[in-house]
Design a binder for these strands. Structure first.
Length: 517
RNA sequence: GUCCCCAUCGUCUAGCCCGGCCUAGGACAUUGCCCUUUCAAGGCAGUAACGCGGGUUCGAAUCCCGCUGGGGACGCCA
């Protein structure tokens, strides 16, 4: 296996078109297969969230692309928790992130690893850099640095670190140590030449090294920082492809130099375009729900959310709806776009309705239970005939866009009684319909086969007898049965509600009209 | 201020690499019609986009340059 697989990709100094670049990458993989006696590159990717908040839409999309890329290539997907910021990271957030990943079925192969468990590893690498002259102690205080940054910005200058501790003499250094100043440790960034990021989405992105500053890799309290730990972990975990948000593109040249200082080959990168809110700024709480679990609570199906998220930046011709298997089969970075995407809740809602239509009623019955409890339609632990519930759900599938809506429509099937919508009552429960409702009730009373088809026969007989349209009978019945004017076909509704409750509700409607007048 | 990224309907996108099959396709939303016991679902039709300016070329959404616009990054955050 060649030591520097990257040289194959970076030797050419022309700007490669992306797709050509891609072909080279594929050739490279084939090359490995051919030249390594059956061994071929095992793709290893990771999702590395910081537990300073819930799993949000953007993070979930990043996780999803990592997952799909790994599965498509029979590689490994690793979950790593980046919690070196101990002041903001919490275990609760670690749990909710894991919960979100599980809900979306983004199964990982290794981990979750926590960076806080790996501090000795980072310490070793820091010592190595220090010993080899690639890092140095910095005695500037955060306050001083903040002050200088402000000044530079005010003067319209770059807020880059001025490097004043970079070349301290041994004497100066030990003088500071005697003063018991706790130093941070900075990485010595090359100041000449360029760093080239090899990106699967954007091609080669060139940065001038003199733009880069000596970043802090270890805080004065001895904890390591992100740009350092991310490289150490990716090296340690043999990550071959770093797939993450666009907002990290600017960090990448710095990380590349750390890879080099560590003597490790550089992975391939994929910087995904951002997800924006309706105002085209970075998606945040201001734009509505951003946490994945909030969508669960709003009655979205995980597969619908996954399907929506994948289409933010990725496409496969004109296809909109994908099974998980199709996603894995079709996913490549060749079809990932470069432009940021606006999160559109309406399209997500449409996809969700499509997924509800496609689902088995039995599956929906399971999924809707918590929502029924939440809405107080059934009590916790209350027994409910699943077969009957599935039948009821079947009539509602194409009418409910979320599980919340589904639960709420289920109310008139399950509850003992219904409450009338005022407008519906005024429009349909009147003197004219009273006789029809009463007649229907009488016709239904002796009926033993309470099925939709035999109910239809009875309805049609009444309609014909009076020379009216079916709607003239159906709408008042609908109000009597559901309290409102919208429902599945009236015969199905009656069949599912059942004879006993149907008669009761018809009776109540007739009485309501009498009482009302 | 500096650096980086991006640019097709209101939104997600196809087409761009390899210029002509583009009178720019699909989807969401929206409007109208059909179906219909209501509401949906479904079907059909409509409105709607290559940011601007220069090149290159017989020919540019597609290649090149500039501009404009948008986004992101510049932490002892990740």
């Amino acid at each position: 296996m060649p030591k520097d697989r990257h040289s194959l990709l970076t030797n050419s100094n022309i700007q490669l078109p992306i797709r050509l670049h891609f072909q080279i990458e594929i050739c490279y993989i084939l090359y490995l297969r051919l030249n390594s006696g059956g061994y071929f590159l095992m793709i290893r990717v990771r999702f590395a969230p910081s537990p300073t908040g819930h799993l949000h839409i953007g993070g979930a999309r990043t996780a999803l692309f990592n997952y799909l890329f790994a599965r498509h290539n029979n590689g490994k997907f690793i979950l790593r928790i980046e919690n070196t910021d101990r002041t903001r990271s919490t275990d609760e957030y670690i749990e909710t992130i894991i919960e979100g990943m599980k809900w979306l079925r983004l199964e990982w192969d290794e981990g979750p690893f926590r960076q806080t468990d790996r501090f000795d590893v980072y310490r070793n690498y820091v010592d190595k850099l220090l010993k080899e002259g690639n890092a140095y102690y910095c005695y500037c205080t955060p306050e001083e640095l903040e002050q200088r940054r402000k000044e530079a910005l005010a003067q319209g200058k770059s807020p880059k670190y001025d490097g004043r501790c970079r070349n301290l003499t041994k004497i100066q250094d030990s003088r500071f140590k005697i003063q018991e100043k706790n130093p941070a440790i900075r990485f010595k960034m090359p100041q000449e030449g360029q760093a080239v990021v090899d990106d699967m989405i954007r091609g080669k992105v060139v940065f001038e090294n003199d733009q880069l500053d000596d970043l802090i890799i270890m805080r004065s309290d001895g904890t390591p920082t992100y740009n350092f730990t991310v490289v150490v972990d990716d090296v340690d975990m043999d990550i071959t492809h770093v797939i993450r948000g666009d907002d990290h593109l600017n960090n990448t040249p710095k990380q590349i130099h750390i890879y080099k200082a560590l003597g490790h080959e550089i992975p391939l990168f994929a910087h995904l375009p951002m997800i924006l809110g309706a105002d085209r700024t970075r998606l945040s709480k201001r734009h509505g729900a951003t946490s994945v679990m909030a969508y669960k609570d709003m009655g979205y199906l995980p597969d619908a959310l996954v399907n929506y998220l994948v289409r933010l930046g990725w496409s496969y011709g004109d296809q909109e709806v994908f099974t998980r298997e199709e996603l894995i089969k079709y996913f490549t970075f060749e079809n990932v776009g470069k432009a940021a995407a606006v999160f559109n809740p309406e399209k997500l809602l449409w996809l969700n309705s499509q997924y509800i239509i496609k689902s088995n009623p039995e599956e929906l019955a399971d999924m809707v239970m918590p929502f029924l409890e939440n809405a107080g339609i059934i009590q916790k632990g209350q027994n409910i005939d699943r077969q009957w519930l599935s039948k009821a759900i079947k009539t509602l599938q194409e009418r409910a866009k979320t599980l919340v809506e589904l639960a709420s429509s289920l109310r008139y099937y399950i509850a003992e009684d219904v409450e009338y919508n005022e407008k519906a009552k005024a429009n349909f429960l009147n003197e004219k319909s009273r006789a029809l409702l009463s007649e229907l009730k009488d016709s239904l009373t002796p009926l033993s086969d309470f099925s939709a088809s035999s109910l239809e026969t009875i309805f049609m007989a009444i309609v014909e007898k009076h020379g009216i349209k079916l709607g003239n009978l159906a709408q008042p019945v609908r109000v009597a049965m559901t309290g409102g004017t919208e429902s599945p076909g009236i015969f199905e509704v009656l069949e599912i509600v059942g004879k006993e409750k149907t008669l009761k509700r018809l009776d109540k409607a007739v009485k309501a009209i009498k009482g009302g007048n």
